[in-house]
Design a protein around this nucleic acid. Sequence first.
RNA 1: GCCCCCAUCGUCUAGAGGCCUAGGACGCCACCCUUUCAAGGUGGAGAUCACCGGUUCGAAUCCGGUUGGGGGCGCCA
Length: 509
Amino acid sequence: MSGTIAELMSAQSSTNPDERPIRVRMAPSPTGPLHIGTARTSLYNYLFARATSGTYVLRIEDTDLARSTPEFEHDILDNLHWLGITWDEGPQAAGGEDIGPFGPYRQSLRMDRYAREADRLLQSAAAYHCWCTPEELDAVRREQEAHREPPRYNGRCLRLTDADRAAFEAEGRRPAVRFKVPPETIRFDDLIRGEVEFDNGLLGDFVIVRANGVPVYHFTVVVDDEQMEISHVIRGEDHLSNTPRHIALIQALDYTVPRFGHMPLILNPDRSKMSKRLLQTAIGAYREQGYLPEAIVNFLAFLGWSPGTEEEIFSLDELAARFEIGEVHKAGAVFDESRLDHLNGVYIRSLNDADLALRLRPLLAEAISDATLAGLVPLVRERMVRLTDAVELTGFLAEPDDVVAGWWDVDDLLPKGRDLAEVAGALGVARDELAACGDWSAEELEAAARGAAGELGWKPGDFFRPLRLAVTGKAVSPPLFGSMVLLGRERTLARLDAALERLRAAAPA
RNA sequence: GCCCCCAUCGUCUAGAGGCCUAGGACGCCACCCUUUCAAGGUGGAGAUCACCGGUUCGAAUCCGGUUGGGGGCGCCA
C-alpha cells in the first residue's frame, strides 16, 4: 500500500513544506506601548518556537516614522522581557545591538532591500507607478461607496500613456508604487483554520511603496519574512484577509510561501475587537497595578488555547511543554478581568515570603522597614488581588498616628447594640490588659484581649472592632494582633489612648 | 456593499458519533470556618450545545442552509 505512505509524506510536507528549519517571528511596531494583543501573539509564537525547538526572531517594524518612538520600543522590549518572553535573534534591548545573522532587525535600517525588491517588481511589470493623490483616491472611494461598490483602486494609473506620466512628472508629482494583483484564487492551509480560499480578482491593486519612498507594511513583512527565512507566520486573525495579498506578493517575488496560522482575536466585553476605549490594553499598566507576569502569561495563554485537561495553572515552561498550535481555537475570546484577578491572587498566594517581600518592597513606603515588611507578608498575602493592594492594607503602618486617627469617626467604633460608655469602658480594659502583657506577641495579645472580652461578656468580634479601628484606622484590616505587633507596643498603646480620649470627650458625662 | 472567519453556561473553556440526564474554572448566591476582610471548605442557580434541515440505529460532535457576531477591504501596522 504505497499510497498510504505517499499520503503520509504529503501530509508531513504540507506541515513543513520544504523541511526548512522552523523560524518564527514577532514584529511589534513601536507606535505605542506593548499591547495585550501583541503580548499574546508574542507569547504564542514563543511557545510555538519552544515547542518545536525553532528559532524566535524579534523584528521592529518602524516604517511609520512619524509615530514610532524609542520610548515605545523600550516599553515593548522591556515588558516582553518582564513577561519572561525571550528571543534568539533581534535587538535584545531598545536601541541595543542586534543578535543574529539576518540583521538588521529594524525595518528603518532595511530600506535599501525594500527599494531593491520594489524595483524588481517594477521591472517585471508586476508593479507600476501610481500618481493618484490621496484626494483623488478618496474621491474615487466615496464614489464607489455611493454606488455600493466595493472600495478598491480603479486602476487609473495602469492605463496611463507616456504623455500622462510626463505630465505628472512635470507637475512635480512623485509616484507611489502599486502592486498589480493577479486575479487568481489563492488557497492556503492555515495552521489554525485549515483550508482557506480567497479570490484575489476581487482585490484592487495596492500600494507597496509610498510616494515618499517609504514602503508599506504588506510589502515589508513579505520581504523581511523571506530574507529572515521565517517558516511559520503566526499572527492575529485580523491579518487573515491580508494573507492572500501577501501570498500574491510572495509569488510575484518568487519567494517561498511560509505556513500561516491566524489566532483568534482578543475581544472587548461586547465582543468587538479589543480596544483601548473599553479595556486597559497596555501591559505596562497591568504591571504598574501589581499584576504578576506569571499570572498574565497564564491568563493570556488560555485566551484561545487550552491543554485539553482541567488543569489551569501553568508556568511559562509548562506551557511551552504542552503547547500545540493545532489546538488553538478559532473563535475570539473575551478578556475577562475578573478571571485575571483570580489568577493573580492565586500566583500571589503561591509566592514564598522572601519573594513576595521583594516584589512588594518598591511599592511600599520607606516608613515600613524591611523587618516590618517581613512580618507583614504573611498577614497580607491572602488579602491581595494585586500587589498594589498592599499599599492600602499597610497604610496604618506607613502613616503617622494622627493621620490614621483621621480615618475613623467615634460612631464607627460602636458595635451594634453598644453605646459610647460601654465601648469606652471595654476599650479601657483592653488597653490595660494589652499593656500588661509581658511579651508583645500576637499570641499573648490575643489571649489577653479574649480574656478581657470574656470577663466583660462581650463577643470577641464586637470587642475587637473598636480596637481594630483605633489601631489600624479601618473596619477592615489585616489580622488585628499581628498588626499590633508590627506597629509596636508604644504606638499601639498611644493610638488606644488617643481613641479613649476621643471616646470620653464624645460621651455624655 | 463585497470578501473571509467564527458560533458549548454571563465569561474562559472540556468535548474530535454512543462514556453527555454536557464536565471544570471565573463570577454570582447560600452555608461552614472565622477577630474584620480575605483565603479555604461545602452546596446551589446558571447551556433545550444559535436556529432549521439532513446523514446515522444514534449528533454538541459529520454535511447543507439560515440567523447572529467578528475581521478585512488605507500612500496604518
